[in-house]
Nucleic acid binder design. Sequence first.
DNA 1: TACTACTTTCAAAAGGTTTTGAAAATACAA
DNA 2: TTGTATTTTCAAAACCTTTTGAAAGTAGTA
Lengths: 166, 166
Amino acid sequence: MQLQEAQEKFIQSWGTLGSHWGINRTMAQVHALLLISAEPLSAQEIMDALKISSGNANMNIRALIDWGLVFKELKPGERKEFFVAEKDMWEVIRKIIIQRKKKELEPVIKVLNEISTVEENSPEAEEFVRVVQDIRLFAQKADSTLEGLVKSDQKWFVGTFLNMIK
Amino acid sequence: MQLQEAQEKFIQSWGTLGSHWGINRTMAQVHALLLISAEPLSAQEIMDALKISSGNANMNIRALIDWGLVFKELKPGERKEFFVAEKDMWEVIRKIIIQRKKKELEPVIKVLNEISTVEENSPEAEEFVRVVQDIRLFAQKADSTLEGLVKSDQKWFVGTFLNMIK
DNA sequence: TACTACTTTCAAAAGGTTTTGAAAATACAA
DNA sequence: TTGTATTTTCAAAACCTTTTGAAAGTAGTA
């Protein structure tokens, strides 16, 4: 397979994956492009490579920087900004977990805590409390697992993963 | 907090969470409603409770059945169908993993395998192959971990999870 | 068979998200 | 300062997904 074809496939594929993971398709494509680029790219180069507008490029590059998946790089003598991707895959995963934990898991735990105060004075209320407690337990377990993972270094994570599959 | 208010909050919250996890909002709300219902519900009861149309209800109930998160139940003497949710949280997680692994992880691994055959005859090609190999390794690790998890029984999963958080 | 309760389909409408691109803002150079 | 390259903003347009509801289909009942 030719390099260019392979690169395009990779960008497409990463975009599709991203769109299922709370990262919009273009955002994931920009990340993919930067991941496989040996050199930092300017906004203009990203726009040209992916055929997207300046607004779109600007917005998604900034989102990637917010997530900690992309860094701004200034070249001496150049007025324009260049961008590089976080290339360490474990770090990428960590950054995504941090965002999603904050945006999804934590709000749900908050609601579960609130609603578990309901009084158990009817069969429906009993069923409700049982289900909510069960989910709450799992959510808290997931939360502390992810928290540990985020705070841990790579080796611990790799080790745990390997342990899991035996 | 009143039971009804708590139930509504739970359904809302579960819907929001679902929509970030490849399950559409209504589908997640139907699942939430069935989860906290002590009795099987008919399509009509689901439509009334969530204020959704028959088409919408039908479509999402079927999707939930496809995912293995909801089961059809026939009551003797009743013409209409009733539905119950899978209430075991670990089983719910397993079912979701099965679907997402199939729909997302496996296609990506396929592409990664294809494109890693590119020849390393330039700095760009080298960078490309390095990144792809790295991701491929991670993806395969994740795949076998999830596969093990899906095939395992609850206890093993709970145990591993607890081990992870120490 | 015809009736009725219930379920399913699907084209059109609604709703939500993403993208565009012109205009405004910014920042450096002369 | 003025000019120019670059970045940012944002309202409108395009696009994509979900929902509706009427009509068709199905299956039990009489």
